[in-house]
Design a protein around this nucleic acid. Structure first.
Lengths: 120, 120
DNA sequence: CCGGATCCAAAGAGATACTG
DNA sequence: CAGTATCTCTTTGGATCCGG
Protein backbone atom coordinates (compact mmCIF):
# COMPACT_ATOMS: atom_id res chain seq x y z
CA UNK A 1 0.00 0.00 0.00
CA UNK A 2 2.93 2.33 -0.49
CA UNK A 3 1.93 2.97 -4.07
CA UNK A 4 0.62 6.49 -3.32
CA UNK A 5 -2.23 6.03 -5.73
CA UNK A 6 -4.98 8.51 -6.38
CA UNK A 7 -8.47 7.83 -5.06
CA UNK A 8 -11.51 9.32 -6.78
CA UNK A 9 -13.68 8.72 -3.71
CA UNK A 10 -12.65 7.62 -0.19
CA UNK A 11 -14.46 4.32 -0.67
CA UNK A 12 -11.70 3.36 -3.08
CA UNK A 13 -9.18 3.58 -0.24
CA UNK A 14 -11.32 1.21 1.81
CA UNK A 15 -11.60 -1.26 -1.04
CA UNK A 16 -7.87 -1.05 -1.60
CA UNK A 17 -7.46 -2.43 1.93
CA UNK A 18 -10.38 -4.86 2.29
CA UNK A 19 -11.07 -5.58 -1.39
CA UNK A 20 -10.05 -8.76 -3.13
CA UNK A 21 -11.79 -12.09 -3.20
CA UNK A 22 -11.23 -13.25 0.38
CA UNK A 23 -10.28 -10.39 2.70
CA UNK A 24 -13.70 -9.42 4.01
CA UNK A 25 -14.66 -13.02 4.76
CA UNK A 26 -11.41 -13.58 6.65
CA UNK A 27 -12.05 -10.38 8.62
CA UNK A 28 -15.60 -11.48 9.38
CA UNK A 29 -14.27 -14.67 10.96
CA UNK A 30 -11.61 -12.78 12.91
CA UNK A 31 -14.29 -10.36 14.12
CA UNK A 32 -15.50 -13.16 16.41
CA UNK A 33 -12.08 -13.38 18.04
CA UNK A 34 -8.44 -14.36 17.42
CA UNK A 35 -7.88 -17.54 15.44
CA UNK A 36 -4.99 -19.68 14.34
CA UNK A 37 -4.40 -20.42 10.67
CA UNK A 38 -5.97 -23.87 10.74
CA UNK A 39 -9.10 -22.55 12.46
CA UNK A 40 -9.65 -19.94 9.77
CA UNK A 41 -9.05 -22.57 7.12
CA UNK A 42 -11.65 -24.81 8.75
CA UNK A 43 -14.21 -21.98 8.63
CA UNK A 44 -13.33 -21.32 4.98
CA UNK A 45 -13.12 -24.71 3.26
CA UNK A 46 -13.12 -23.13 -0.20
CA UNK A 47 -9.99 -21.02 0.18
CA UNK A 48 -6.62 -22.56 -0.66
CA UNK A 49 -3.76 -22.37 1.87
CA UNK A 50 -1.92 -20.25 -0.63
CA UNK A 51 -4.64 -17.63 -0.92
CA UNK A 52 -5.25 -17.72 2.83
CA UNK A 53 -1.58 -17.02 3.54
CA UNK A 54 -1.48 -14.29 0.89
CA UNK A 55 -4.67 -12.67 2.18
CA UNK A 56 -3.41 -12.71 5.77
CA UNK A 57 -0.04 -11.22 4.72
CA UNK A 58 -1.71 -8.32 2.90
CA UNK A 59 -4.05 -7.58 5.79
CA UNK A 60 -1.07 -7.61 8.14
CA UNK A 61 0.94 -5.26 5.89
CA UNK A 62 -1.95 -2.81 5.85
CA UNK A 63 -2.18 -2.88 9.65
CA UNK A 64 -5.64 -4.49 9.79
CA UNK A 65 -4.61 -7.66 11.63
CA UNK A 66 -1.72 -8.78 13.81
CA UNK A 67 0.22 -12.01 13.50
CA UNK A 68 1.64 -13.77 16.55
CA UNK A 69 4.00 -16.72 16.18
CA UNK A 70 4.36 -19.23 19.01
CA UNK A 71 7.70 -20.99 18.73
CA UNK A 72 6.68 -24.55 19.41
CA UNK A 73 6.27 -27.88 17.68
CA UNK A 74 3.92 -28.18 15.93
CA UNK A 75 4.00 -24.48 15.01
CA UNK A 76 1.17 -22.18 16.09
CA UNK A 77 0.33 -18.83 14.50
CA UNK A 78 -2.52 -16.67 15.73
CA UNK A 79 -4.17 -13.85 13.83
CA UNK A 80 -6.22 -11.09 15.45
CA UNK A 81 -7.89 -7.81 14.44
CA UNK A 82 -5.66 -4.81 15.18
CA UNK A 83 -7.07 -1.54 16.49
CA UNK A 84 -7.52 -0.46 12.89
CA UNK A 85 -9.18 -3.80 12.15
CA UNK A 86 -11.58 -3.39 15.06
CA UNK A 87 -12.68 -0.07 13.55
CA UNK A 88 -14.03 -2.13 10.64
CA UNK A 89 -16.32 -4.09 12.97
CA UNK A 90 -19.50 -2.08 12.17
CA UNK A 91 -18.99 -2.72 8.46
CA UNK A 92 -18.31 -6.43 9.02
CA UNK A 93 -21.40 -6.76 11.21
CA UNK A 94 -23.63 -5.08 8.64
CA UNK A 95 -22.26 -7.21 5.83
CA UNK A 96 -23.27 -10.26 7.86
CA UNK A 97 -26.71 -8.86 8.69
CA UNK A 98 -27.39 -7.88 5.09
CA UNK A 99 -26.45 -11.39 3.96
CA UNK A 100 -28.97 -12.90 6.38
CA UNK A 101 -31.66 -10.56 5.10
CA UNK A 102 -30.80 -11.25 1.47
CA UNK A 103 -30.89 -15.03 1.90
CA UNK A 104 -34.26 -14.67 3.63
CA UNK A 105 -35.69 -12.57 0.80
CA UNK A 106 -34.36 -15.02 -1.77
CA UNK A 107 -35.93 -18.02 -0.06
CA UNK A 108 -39.23 -16.12 0.07
CA UNK A 109 -39.04 -15.65 -3.70
CA UNK A 110 -38.23 -19.33 -4.18
CA UNK A 111 -41.16 -20.40 -2.02
CA UNK A 112 -43.35 -17.99 -3.97
CA UNK A 113 -42.31 -19.56 -7.22
CA UNK A 114 -43.05 -23.02 -5.85
CA UNK A 115 -46.52 -21.81 -4.86
CA UNK A 116 -47.10 -20.42 -8.35
CA UNK A 117 -46.15 -23.75 -9.86
CA UNK A 118 -48.59 -25.55 -7.61
CA UNK A 119 -51.33 -23.25 -8.90
CA UNK A 120 -50.67 -23.90 -12.59
CA UNK B 1 -27.13 -16.24 -8.77
CA UNK B 2 -29.14 -19.35 -9.52
CA UNK B 3 -26.21 -21.55 -8.56
CA UNK B 4 -27.68 -22.49 -5.16
CA UNK B 5 -24.27 -22.49 -3.61
CA UNK B 6 -23.54 -23.16 0.03
CA UNK B 7 -22.54 -20.28 2.29
CA UNK B 8 -20.44 -20.93 5.37
CA UNK B 9 -21.45 -17.56 6.85
CA UNK B 10 -24.10 -15.07 5.66
CA UNK B 11 -21.35 -12.57 4.80
CA UNK B 12 -20.44 -14.83 1.91
CA UNK B 13 -23.87 -14.24 0.40
CA UNK B 14 -23.32 -10.49 0.63
CA UNK B 15 -19.90 -10.73 -0.99
CA UNK B 16 -21.36 -12.91 -3.70
CA UNK B 17 -23.57 -9.96 -4.62
CA UNK B 18 -21.36 -6.92 -3.97
CA UNK B 19 -17.92 -8.54 -4.12
CA UNK B 20 -15.58 -8.24 -7.06
CA UNK B 21 -13.22 -5.47 -7.94
CA UNK B 22 -15.67 -2.69 -8.92
CA UNK B 23 -19.20 -3.39 -7.64
CA UNK B 24 -18.99 -1.52 -4.35
CA UNK B 25 -17.45 1.56 -5.96
CA UNK B 26 -20.18 1.64 -8.62
CA UNK B 27 -22.82 1.30 -5.90
CA UNK B 28 -21.19 4.11 -3.90
CA UNK B 29 -21.57 6.43 -6.87
CA UNK B 30 -25.16 5.34 -7.49
CA UNK B 31 -25.92 5.91 -3.80
CA UNK B 32 -25.80 9.65 -4.58
CA UNK B 33 -28.54 9.24 -7.16
CA UNK B 34 -29.37 7.73 -10.58
CA UNK B 35 -26.68 8.08 -13.24
CA UNK B 36 -26.26 7.30 -16.90
CA UNK B 37 -23.40 5.10 -18.08
CA UNK B 38 -21.15 7.95 -19.17
CA UNK B 39 -21.60 9.74 -15.84
CA UNK B 40 -20.48 6.67 -13.90
CA UNK B 41 -17.55 6.24 -16.27
CA UNK B 42 -16.54 9.87 -15.65
CA UNK B 43 -16.54 9.27 -11.89
CA UNK B 44 -14.49 6.09 -12.39
CA UNK B 45 -11.74 6.93 -14.90
CA UNK B 46 -9.84 3.74 -14.09
CA UNK B 47 -12.56 1.24 -15.02
CA UNK B 48 -12.80 0.03 -18.59
CA UNK B 49 -16.14 0.17 -20.43
CA UNK B 50 -16.01 -3.60 -20.56
CA UNK B 51 -15.76 -4.01 -16.79
CA UNK B 52 -18.30 -1.24 -16.20
CA UNK B 53 -20.85 -2.94 -18.45
CA UNK B 54 -20.14 -6.32 -16.90
CA UNK B 55 -20.39 -4.96 -13.36
CA UNK B 56 -23.69 -3.19 -14.09
CA UNK B 57 -25.13 -6.33 -15.69
CA UNK B 58 -24.31 -8.46 -12.67
CA UNK B 59 -25.74 -5.93 -10.23
CA UNK B 60 -28.90 -5.78 -12.33
CA UNK B 61 -29.21 -9.57 -12.45
CA UNK B 62 -28.95 -9.74 -8.66
CA UNK B 63 -31.68 -7.10 -8.28
CA UNK B 64 -29.44 -4.45 -6.72
CA UNK B 65 -29.84 -1.83 -9.45
CA UNK B 66 -32.36 -1.09 -12.20
CA UNK B 67 -31.55 -0.30 -15.82
CA UNK B 68 -33.73 2.07 -17.83
CA UNK B 69 -33.21 2.45 -21.58
CA UNK B 70 -34.40 5.60 -23.35
CA UNK B 71 -34.93 4.79 -27.02
CA UNK B 72 -33.33 7.77 -28.65
CA UNK B 73 -30.24 8.71 -30.67
CA UNK B 74 -27.72 8.92 -29.18
CA UNK B 75 -28.74 6.15 -26.78
CA UNK B 76 -29.33 6.91 -23.11
CA UNK B 77 -29.27 4.34 -20.32
CA UNK B 78 -29.85 5.23 -16.68
CA UNK B 79 -28.91 3.09 -13.68
CA UNK B 80 -30.40 3.46 -10.24
CA UNK B 81 -30.34 1.62 -6.91
CA UNK B 82 -33.32 -0.71 -6.54
CA UNK B 83 -35.11 -1.15 -3.23
CA UNK B 84 -32.68 -3.95 -2.44
CA UNK B 85 -29.82 -1.67 -3.44
CA UNK B 86 -31.04 1.10 -1.16
CA UNK B 87 -30.90 -1.37 1.73
CA UNK B 88 -27.13 -1.44 1.17
CA UNK B 89 -26.87 2.31 1.78
CA UNK B 90 -25.66 2.05 5.42
CA UNK B 91 -22.82 -0.25 4.33
CA UNK B 92 -21.88 2.03 1.42
CA UNK B 93 -21.87 5.07 3.71
CA UNK B 94 -19.66 3.38 6.26
CA UNK B 95 -17.23 2.18 3.62
CA UNK B 96 -16.87 5.80 2.52
CA UNK B 97 -16.47 7.08 6.08
CA UNK B 98 -13.90 4.44 6.94
CA UNK B 99 -11.90 5.37 3.84
CA UNK B 100 -11.81 9.01 4.93
CA UNK B 101 -10.62 8.00 8.38
CA UNK B 102 -8.01 5.62 6.98
CA UNK B 103 -6.56 8.22 4.61
CA UNK B 104 -6.40 10.66 7.51
CA UNK B 105 -4.56 8.19 9.73
CA UNK B 106 -2.16 7.36 6.93
CA UNK B 107 -1.29 11.01 6.27
CA UNK B 108 -0.67 11.45 10.00
CA UNK B 109 1.84 8.61 9.86
CA UNK B 110 3.51 10.10 6.79
CA UNK B 111 3.77 13.51 8.46
CA UNK B 112 5.18 11.78 11.53
CA UNK B 113 7.85 10.09 9.46
CA UNK B 114 8.79 13.41 7.83
CA UNK B 115 9.12 14.94 11.29
CA UNK B 116 11.39 12.07 12.38
CA UNK B 117 13.61 12.63 9.37
CA UNK B 118 13.91 16.32 10.17
CA UNK B 119 15.13 15.38 13.65
CA UNK B 120 17.89 13.05 12.42
C1' DC C 1 2.04 -32.72 11.68
C1' DC C 2 1.44 -27.23 10.94
C1' DG C 3 2.27 -23.18 8.44
C1' DG C 4 4.16 -21.58 4.53
C1' DA C 5 6.70 -21.37 -0.21
C1' DT C 6 7.19 -22.55 -5.18
C1' DC C 7 5.77 -23.66 -9.80
C1' DC C 8 2.46 -24.05 -13.48
C1' DA C 9 -2.30 -23.83 -15.28
C1' DA C 10 -6.87 -21.41 -15.31
C1' DA C 11 -9.76 -17.52 -14.66
C1' DG C 12 -10.45 -12.61 -14.40
C1' DA C 13 -9.23 -7.94 -15.70
C1' DG C 14 -6.90 -4.35 -18.87
C1' DA C 15 -6.20 -2.18 -23.68
C1' DT C 16 -7.80 -1.26 -27.95
C1' DA C 17 -10.49 -1.44 -32.06
C1' DC C 18 -15.04 -1.84 -33.73
C1' DT C 19 -20.60 -1.84 -34.21
C1' DG C 20 -25.61 -0.11 -33.99
C1' DC D 1 -23.34 6.95 -26.43
C1' DA D 2 -23.51 2.37 -24.97
C1' DG D 3 -21.89 -1.89 -25.66
C1' DT D 4 -19.05 -5.96 -28.02
C1' DA D 5 -14.84 -8.65 -29.60
C1' DT D 6 -10.27 -9.89 -29.29
C1' DC D 7 -5.87 -10.10 -27.49
C1' DT D 8 -2.67 -9.53 -23.62
C1' DC D 9 -1.47 -9.40 -18.86
C1' DT D 10 -2.46 -9.98 -13.90
C1' DT D 11 -4.60 -12.50 -10.27
C1' DT D 12 -6.21 -16.85 -8.45
C1' DG D 13 -6.28 -21.95 -8.08
C1' DG D 14 -4.04 -26.60 -7.48
C1' DA D 15 -0.34 -29.67 -6.64
C1' DT D 16 3.83 -30.38 -4.56
C1' DC D 17 7.77 -29.49 -1.61
C1' DC D 18 10.17 -27.47 2.71
C1' DG D 19 11.43 -26.22 7.63
C1' DG D 20 10.55 -26.80 12.26
Amino acid sequence: MSGERHYNIPSEATMDVIGGKWKIIVLCHLSYGPKRTSEIKKKMPDITQKMLTQTLRELEEDGIITRTVFNQVPPKVVYELSEMGVSLQPILDQICEWGEMYLNEKSKVIRGQAKEQLLT
